[in-house]
Structure formats: C-alpha cells, structure tokens
C-alpha cells in the first residue's frame, strides 16, 4: 500500500511541500522582512538575510523562527 493516497488530502490543497503561489507572493521573512527563496526539493522557504530555512509541512509554511533550520553556509 505504498502508493495509496492520503484520503485527508483535499483536491484544492497542494500535496507534500508544494506551496500555493499566492502564499509565495505575499510571504517575507518574519525576522528580517527580506525576500524568501522557495526550495521545492527540500520543502523549505529560505531567508538568506536571516540565515534561516522555514519548513513547509503538508503544504503549510511554518513561518516561526524557532522552528526554522539554521543555514550552515
């Protein structure tokens, strides 16, 4: 049953780490208010100015600094 679809996923909700384009348009980094890069592969929104990567879980961006990953480089 590895290919079964999650029944909780509704049709209009993007799957996995897909983020709605409208959200990408209006979101900024909550720490620096700088722009964000969308890393589709990693499912993250990256703020270079803050050195943080905000996770996207089930299509929901988690814009909280305390839940973001610190960029190593």
């Amino acid at each position: 049953m590895t290919t079964s679809q999650d029944p909780s996923q509704t049709k209009d909700r993007p799957r996995a780490s897909e983020v709605d384009p409208k959200l990408l348009e209006i979101l900024v980094c909550p720490v620096t208010r700088g722009t964000l890069e969308y890393d589709r592969e990693a499912g993250e929104l990256i703020s270079r100015s803050a050195g943080l990567a905000y996770p996207i879980r089930e299509g929901v961006p988690i814009m909280l600094p305390e839940e973001a990953r610190e960029l190593s480089d």
């Binding site: 209006i26 979101l27 909550p30 814009m63």
Partner: peptide
C-alpha cells in the same frame, strides 16, 4: 492544518507578510 483554505503558520507579533500585499 485544519484550515478550509490555504493554511499558514505565523506569529502575529512577527508578521511574515509583505507590505501592501
């Protein structure tokens, strides 16, 4: 995650929303 429309997690004290958007 239970939202009917597009879901988003934010803190109103540090609003991650662009100006005039």
């Amino acid at each position: 995650r239970t939202s009917t429309f597009k879901g988003l997690v934010l803190d109103e004290e540090r609003l991650p929303i662009a100006e005039e958007s």
